[in-house]
Design a protein around this nucleic acid. Sequence first.
DNA 1: CATGAATGAGGGTTCATTCAT
DNA 2: AATGAATGAACCCTCATTCAT
Lengths: 206, 206, 206, 206
Amino acid sequence: MQEEKLSRREREKLRHRRQMLITALELFSEKGYHNVSMHEIAKRAEFAIGTLYKFFKNKEDLYKALMMEKAEEHHRVLMGVLSEENDVLTVIEDYIAAKARLFADNLATLRLYFAETRGASFNIKAGLDQDIRKLYDKFILRLASVLETGVRRKVFRKMDPYYMAVGLEGLTNAFLFCWLEDPEQHPYGANVLVIRDMFLKGVLAK
Amino acid sequence: MQEEKLSRREREKLRHRRQMLITALELFSEKGYHNVSMHEIAKRAEFAIGTLYKFFKNKEDLYKALMMEKAEEHHRVLMGVLSEENDVLTVIEDYIAAKARLFADNLATLRLYFAETRGASFNIKAGLDQDIRKLYDKFILRLASVLETGVRRKVFRKMDPYYMAVGLEGLTNAFLFCWLEDPEQHPYGANVLVIRDMFLKGVLAK
Amino acid sequence: MQEEKLSRREREKLRHRRQMLITALELFSEKGYHNVSMHEIAKRAEFAIGTLYKFFKNKEDLYKALMMEKAEEHHRVLMGVLSEENDVLTVIEDYIAAKARLFADNLATLRLYFAETRGASFNIKAGLDQDIRKLYDKFILRLASVLETGVRRKVFRKMDPYYMAVGLEGLTNAFLFCWLEDPEQHPYGANVLVIRDMFLKGVLAK
Amino acid sequence: MQEEKLSRREREKLRHRRQMLITALELFSEKGYHNVSMHEIAKRAEFAIGTLYKFFKNKEDLYKALMMEKAEEHHRVLMGVLSEENDVLTVIEDYIAAKARLFADNLATLRLYFAETRGASFNIKAGLDQDIRKLYDKFILRLASVLETGVRRKVFRKMDPYYMAVGLEGLTNAFLFCWLEDPEQHPYGANVLVIRDMFLKGVLAK
DNA sequence: CATGAATGAGGGTTCATTCAT
DNA sequence: AATGAATGAACCCTCATTCAT
């Protein structure tokens, strides 16, 4: 898309940047942010250390770039699903499926993100987490608005749609982590069904 | 219990140990495991660095001790609640309340745990996480067995009680984090009610 | 000898001191002076660290005491042999045998001494080495005086007896180390014979 | 030989390495391996500590490199002398002279080696000492083979040439240390003559 | 006298970052 | 633009020594 208008030089640069980010992700998720050195990244990516610093002004910057790129991708995908014109229940189901796919494809990134950013771990939080939070808040509001439609159409009970969204997130996260940690014992299909069921019908007998 | 029979010397030692753990927790949750130095901990706790190392053979050991102690406390509290002889719904409600209290009292530890241990962050995971996982697995099974009772008594629908437990965990976590991050906007009472409602009745209109 | 006039208290003290020295020697020769800590010595000797410091004012002092004790013992034994009233050749033979026995019995100490003291290793040299040197010089002079008798009696060629002593020392050391490093390949008997032969007759054919 | 084809960069690197080794030797022989810190070496050599670690992966490695380099040099020189085509007695004399020169030029290294490596001092022994031993064993065998020639040509008595070599080593070491410790009292010339004399003719009157 | 908890200087080592080439 | 040698602050940890009990 954007690349087509770039000179060869610039296309190369972008390729290099991408290579560095991919390598960094690999290493970070193998060993954790603090246990990977810039030299290690440079070496594995087959660049000189100086070149790495031409692209990212320091280690934190590299980490942020990595996370933001992934966050934006996730955001794009999920917002896409939530924007499709379908009946609410189908949208929710599609959303769960899409989220599951993202989880499976980006296990490394997710683990890294939870490991490094969610705590008061370090000041990256200040910058990075906020940006990602902003995206996530936007997304939750979008999800809430979808659910609100459902409420308006009487598909759902009269509830605060924001809280419904929070609840849905909690359920999907719990089951998807469950699945990812032990896919054999907790197969994808079963999990998805239970998420839908619990979300829609709760657990009461009646 | 045990403390009463200790000599003054040993009671002092225990106090010192406790002080070090408290200080370490403070610092770790302010800045993250990797951004806190042993010197820093020693200084803030007002001990010499050597003294710190007399109590914990290295930094990782200190961290593990910290986490295990907290995990065991949580475990004890929650298992206690789940063991009370009450009708299932009351137990669940008590459990949510107890968990909320633990969250509120131990926000720092929780953040630290999620930030440092859950990812592939470092090899502490190998030892520590397993021990904590074992506790957590035990707990989930206990919760499932409570829920199973509910199923047997026809309070709940016929579902896999393990998945019910997973779902309940997901919901409570989501709402409690929500509450802790912005207690004014998402007050405790509202959250607890929504957890109970969503868990029990789901979101469907009927 | 001296001990009989000491009170029980003082005899105990001496026994403790001896125990500490023995333990220290064990550890030093297992691992080298710098790789053994005072705590380690105290623990293995079953004393508190403070008690160790009551007996030796610091680590260097302990080391010096150890070495001086051994040096004096060696000195006593070898000087004894050199003082016996026998013909020169017998004295020399006895001396070689006695030295061999000392080597064998004190391999650990010797290794330690060569390892730690002979180089400009550390300032122990200043104090300790000088004292030991003094003993050794005395001994060499005694050996020279025995050899001088041999010269006077025309048993030996007309040579500087001091240099004869140096030469004898060189030969015995070389062969005894040889023996100690690989007793099977270079058995004691063979070595002693060769020392005597080379010292007395040299290597020329005629 | 190899150096001439190196780039300026690489020649500089080699010079730096050499400078570090020289400085390390200076310090080690002034104070002993364990009493010299890497910081001290770096400072005296006028490099940053990190640079030192670029060249030697740790302190032990630096020490080993130092010793091996010297050992190889000695080996080369002495083997060279022993390989010259001369009558046996001349070769022996040349050998003594060459060894004396090496002793004089490398007093620091020798002292260090005897002080740090020969004892059970530390585990460098494991790796380093073995390598040096191998060189030394090769050398002793070479010396023995020279002496064997002497035996075959009836220059020497019928003796085990290996033991002759050991004896020669013992004598040279004793007298050369003697000379180095007090060159005024025990001048070079006198020592060399006595070595030769004692080795060849022994001390008996006849 | 004996004890052992406490001390803190100092050691080995790593690694993010810079800058001359 | 790319390189990689050089930097040095900062880290984790050890251990000789002291001193209150």
